[in-house]
């Protein structure tokens, strides 16, 4: 299937530094795509190229196979990291204005605004000035402004910053509902753990270059470490041809918590069989690396210099 959005060898340089260096991405339709990387990696630069705020120096963006053009503006909804609205404008008027800038007719826009305000439970505030709203409510208004024109591609830069947990969940549900309706969602964030369970696909960007991309499942598979956490009671042999104990923690009453890595060729079932024969097993699970861990590992492998400099990778 043709990706809804493609970046081909995109390069963008500012006066002092290179923000994007030959970045290519395929974003499948109706997926939730995570564009991940530390601050300053180039995520926002890429988004600004997609939203046509700025242009690429080289390479191109394609939407459904077509070269990016001004008419694609209406197909994209963008929630920038810098949140803001006209403070002295009423919520309803403001949404109407922003929707009409995206090309909606007055009647359509009014209808949709009404529906959305009710959905997110802020209909009572439609006639209030934005500055009278709480920050959370302003975020809701901004989210509505992003999706009001029913864009096929929704780009959310640091989507959950500024939301309290309740509202963050509310917005998560709305995002999933939008995907059900056919939208493609792009998350851009440096807080990888906040989106990894929602994403189908991710791309990791560091220092203006893509270091890794693919489906979350594939990536996790590739980066499996054959490490298992075991809890139980009894005494565990430390030396064994099939595995080694990396960590060993004694708990009271003969309980233990161990981290065990399998040697090549051994399966988890081999380990489990051994354990059952020797100790009382309370818990057994694979330790799957988080995207954050994978990112750090990958950066260490491919660009060790960025780690040595003490770059905060988080």
């Amino acid at each position: 299937m043709q990706p809804i959005l493609q970046a081909l060898n995109v390069r963008k340089a500012y006066a002092q530094h290179v923000a994007l260096d030959g970045v290519s991405l395929d974003i499948p339709e109706r997926s939730i795509f995570g564009l991940l990387g530390p601050n300053g990696a180039g995520k926002t630069s890429l988004i600004r190229i997609i939203t046509q705020i700025t242009g690429a120096d080289a390479g191109e963006i394609r939407i459904r196979g077509e070269k990016l053009a001004p008419r694609h503006i209406a197909e994209i909804g963008y929630l920038p990291e810098e949140r803001g609205l006209y403070k002295k404008m009423k919520v309803g008027e403001q949404l109407l204005y922003l929707a009409r800038l995206k090309g909606l007719t007055r009647t359509d826009a009014t209808q949709r605004i009404k529906t959305w305000l009710q959905r997110l439970d802020i209909a009572a505030w439609a006639e209030k000035n934005v500055e009278d709203l709480s920050k959370g409510m302003q975020q809701k208004v901004q989210f509505i402004a992003t999706v009001l024109h029913e864009p096929g591609i929704i780009i959310l830069d640091e989507p959950f910053s500024g939301f309290d947990p309740i509202n963050a969940n509310l917005i998560k549900d709305e995002i999933l509902a939008l995907r059900e309706k056919g939208a493609t969602i792009i998350f851009s964030t440096h807080r990888m753990e906040s989106v990894e369970e929602m994403c189908d696909n991710i791309a990791l960007i560091n220092r203006s270059r893509k270091v890794l991309d693919g489906t979350v499942g594939d990536i996790r598979n590739t980066f499996r470490t054959q490490t298992y956490a075991v809890e139980g009671r009894g005494r565990l042999m430390v030396v064994h041809p099939d595995f080694e104990v990396i960590e060993h923690h004694e708990r009271e009453n003969g309980h233990f918590y161990d981290v065990i890595r399998l040697h090549a060729g051994a399966t988890p079932n081999d380990l489990l069989r051994y354990l059952i024969g020797n100790v009382e097993v309370h818990a057994f699970r694979e330790l799957i690396p988080s995207i954050n861990d994978i990112f750090i590992r990958r950066v260490r492998e491919t660009m060790p210099e960025t780690i040595l400099e003490g770059e905060p990778v988080h």
């Binding site: 705020i53 920038p80 803001g84 402004a145 992003t146």
Partner: peptide, 15 residues
């Protein structure tokens, strides 16, 4: 105004 209200990116991505 757009800059101080930090709405500039939304507006500029529309017009």
């Amino acid at each position: 105004e757009e800059k101080t209200n930090r709405i500039v990116e939304v507006v500029i991505s529309s017009v």
